[in-house]
Amino acid sequence: MTLLMQEVLGGLVLGSIYSLVAMGLTLVYGVMEIPNFAHGHLYMLGAYITWFLLVSAHFGYWPATLAAAVVLSGIGALLEWVVFRPLRNAPQVHAMIASVGVMLFLEALAQWLWGPDFQRMPTPYGRVLNAGPFTVSEQQLVVIAAAIVCMSLLYLFLKHTPLGMAIEAVAQNRTGARLVGIRTHRISLITFGLSAALASIAASLIAPIHLIFPAMGTMVIMKAFAIIVIGGMGSIPGAIAGGYILALAESIGGAYVSTNYQDVIAFALLALILFLRPSGLFTKGV
């Protein structure tokens, strides 16, 4: 029972991260119909920048997290403007290939700037709390709480601000949104920035628990893709639910089946779902 509780906690922590990353990915997909293969590497960059600000510029943990999110949103917006906007009218695969190019570039960039070694990020929340046989670190609680705050803020932003509602409108119908006077280019730019900021925050949160290295985004992006396919591409509630479901399945499955095949679970699940319902789990069949 304790083992199960422990795994559930681990799953919730991981699920918080998966959900934040997947939300950004699904947001960009919904608004621009681009599966951004570089999204995981924006996450990686967010981790490195936070780490750099903490260690070399002596920022506090939260200022560093926020500053990294701001930097990343700038980088995200820049990518939209320079790389993806010109490909709007090109065949679908072109934007995907471009995002692969960005991905390869970012990984090499991180390796060049910070080297291939693993880095550990310090945190003010280093204490471990014990409740009988059950252990939890402060950072784990911080991850779970911060993710919930971020999701709530995003929800309020999308549902109750004019800008957020414009983003939702574009996601639902780009042409229609343009006809009613929404500047879709600006919305794409903002969405990309927002998505990169979410990835960065997720990375800042988890980095003290996991390690930082140039390829850390690769597995995360593939998991995030699995999640948004499971949750329905473009659906934010789907990304959140999918993130937690996948993480729980992984940590519980990893504990009871085999940690060796933990990573396979996501992709096996993805393959199964695409096989049964090619349009995703939470989408209405048309």
């Binding site: 471009a98 190019g101 570039f105 970012l106 390796q111």
Partner: peptide, 20 residues
């Protein structure tokens, strides 16, 4: 070695945009 993609990554982006 490690940094080749600093060149090839942008090459991919430029190719797909201008010389698909």
């Amino acid at each position: 070695q490690q940094y080749q993609m600093l060149i090839f990554g942008p090459v991919l982006v430029i190719l797909i945009r201008f010389f698909p």
